[in-house]
Structures are given as C-alpha cells and as structure tokens.
C-alpha cells in the first residue's frame, strides 16, 4: 500500500504539493488525476525518493522508498517515458536495468514480449521510438523486477486508443494478482478507462477522492431560469449551495429542493433536471480553466 500523509513541497513562495494525504490500496488501480502542473509528478517523485518533501511522509508499506533494498525489484517506477538515452537500443535500456537488479537476461525478452515490442523494434535506438513505444519500453522497465507495487507517471500519454485498452488489461491483471498500481493522467477519459479508484488533484491539493463509481455518480441538479439573478437569490434564500456554470446553475441539492425553492420565490424555470454524471468532468474542467494558461481567447477578426 502506498501511503502519503500531509505531504507538501514548496519551491520558494510556490507550493507545488500542498498538504496532500491519500492511499493506494493493493488489488486496485488508483488513478491520480489532475491538470498539467497540478503537482502529480512532484508527488510521485517524492514517493519514489527523488524529491525531498518539505513536509509530510510518503511510504510504501510503511517504508520509505529509499530504505528498500534493491528497490526496483519491489517497486516498479516509471516517471517519464521520454527520459531515456536516445543512443541506446530499447533492449539495451532493459538490459542495464536487469543487470542492475541482478536478473537473468531472459527477463528482458519476457518483458519485451509482454509489452509487445518486436525483436526488430528492440534493436532500434530509443531516439527513433514514438512516444507510445517509449511508454511500452518504460512499462517493461518498471515491470522488470516483478515488483508488487507500480508507480507510473502519465503512462498512457502517447498511446493510441487500442494501446490504452491494452494498458487497462495489463494493469487490471496485475492488480488482480494483488499488485498495487498508482498511475497519473491529465485526461479524465484515460483514467476512467483504466482506474478503479480516483484521486483528483488541483493546484497541489486533493479536491476529490474515492472509487470511480462514487465520484462519477455525484448527484446534483442543473437548473436554468429566464431570470438567473432571481434564481440565484431564491437558492441563496433557501440556503442551498450552488455554482454558476455557464448559462445554468448547478447545485448539490436534489431537483425537488431546487424546484421548491424556485417555486417559493416565484421564479419561472426553463430547465430543471438531475445533472449528468458529469460531476467529475465539470469539476475537472473548472480545475483546468482556473489555470490562467488555459483561458480561451477569441481570435477575432480585427474590427
């Protein structure tokens, strides 16, 4: 089990990871979801002992990564698939890992077969690999030592849809055998396909966590009125929490409560329904758009 407690990392004034706590359980694939720059990679590097936390602890079965003897045979780590020497062949990358871990050379062939890299591809220099091939190589490397725990940063990045489903099967079987998997992604649909549990991180903080079903089932109501200002004051008067989302208002209250509040205030509704299972998606979108870089500007024709 990967356990992270009150983990923080600051760089000067900037807090990349802010008092984060979560756990990844054996037998489950835990998705670590967040927009770019949310602190996913920093958190994962701290778990793998590459970055020193400013505060808090990250342990695997109660042990810090750096205290594990021959750690790669117990915890498989892939932090960046493109971080490989371009002048080495794929096979050589795995051979170095196998030598270091003290594994027989046959293990390299097994892993190449497992991730679907052909003999010919394995003899090519990594420089000539596509991102998808690098990901497969990185996963092969993480699995080399037959670890019980896997930590994968953006492993599905660069994979085509078939590749993503291949990875789901691979990780599913791995978890079914009792393995613990933590993988990150900045794409909700990727993680929806692969993960059982979700941890959503934004601006260094955990904003949601739970099983995928729980999070996707988030109940809520979507409501629109011709007079939106009146609707908002009606909901405020009824003590209901809500958020303005585009031209509508979403509330965590049930449609019944929202409808009653509107009726009490005499506000005519245009739309009232249970929101789609888009709770997570919406939350995720908000996280993403609160990031200055992603504000969409209209590239209008000069007047």
């Amino acid at each position: 089990m990967i356990e992270v407690q009150n983990l923080s990392k600051s760089y000067g004034d900037f807090t990349a990871v802010d008092d984060v706590s979560f756990a990844c359980r054996p037998g489950r694939v835990t998705g670590f979801l967040g927009p770019n720059g949310a602190g996913k990679s920093t958190a994962m590097r701290m778990i793998a002992g590459l970055t020193r936390p400013s505060k808090g602890t990250a342990t695997i079965d109660g042990v810090e990564y750096t205290a594990i003897p021959n750690p790669a045979t117990q915890v498989g780590v892939l932090l960046d698939a493109s971080a490989q020497h371009g002048g080495r062949t794929g096979r050589e990358v795995l051979t170095i890992g196998a030598r270091m871990m003290g594994l027989p050379a046959s293990r390299v062939d097994e892993m190449l077969a497992l991730v679907g890299l052909t003999d010919k591809e394995a003899k090519r220099r990594v420089r000539n690999y596509s991102l998808g091939m690098r990901q497969r190589l990185g996963i092969a490397h993480a699995l080399l030592g037959d670890p019980k725990v896997l930590i994968l940063d953006e492993p599905a990045n660069g994979l085509d849809p078939a590749g993503i489903h291949w990875m789901r099967r691979l990780l599913r079987e791995y978890a079914n055998r009792g393995g613990t998997v933590m993988l990150s992604s900045h794409l909700l649909h990727e993680i929806q396909i692969i993960a059982d549990d979700l941890i959503v991180i934004g601006n260094g903080r955990i904003v949601a966590s739970g099983t995928k079903e729980e999070l996707l089932r988030v109940a809520g109501t979507r409501v629109r009125a011709r007079d939106m200002a009146a609707l908002e004051s009606a909901l405020t008067a009824a003590g209901l929490t809500f958020e303005v989302a585009g031209d509508a208002v979403t509330s965590t209250a049930s449609p019944e409560e929202v409808g009653q509040a509107a009726a009490d205030a005499g506000v005519a509704l245009v739309e009232l329904r249970e929101s789609d299972s888009a709770g997570l998606e919406e939350m995720f979108l908000q996280l993403t758009s609160s990031n200055q870089r992603d504000v969409i500007t209209t590239e209008g024709v000069p007047a």
Binding site: R25, I60, D61, Q74, K148, R177
Partner: peptide, 18 residues
C-alpha cells in the same frame, strides 16, 4: 485472492545491489 492483497509487499531483508 484477498489474502494475497494483505501480504506485506515490501521485503526489507532482501540483499541490496552489490
């Protein structure tokens, strides 16, 4: 199968890398 998941996963008695 559920017993497998409760097995301690990290073995601290393994030899390190020589």
């Amino acid at each position: 199968m559920s017993t497998a998941t409760t097995d301690p996963t990290i073995d601290l008695s393994r030899p390190g890398v020589p």
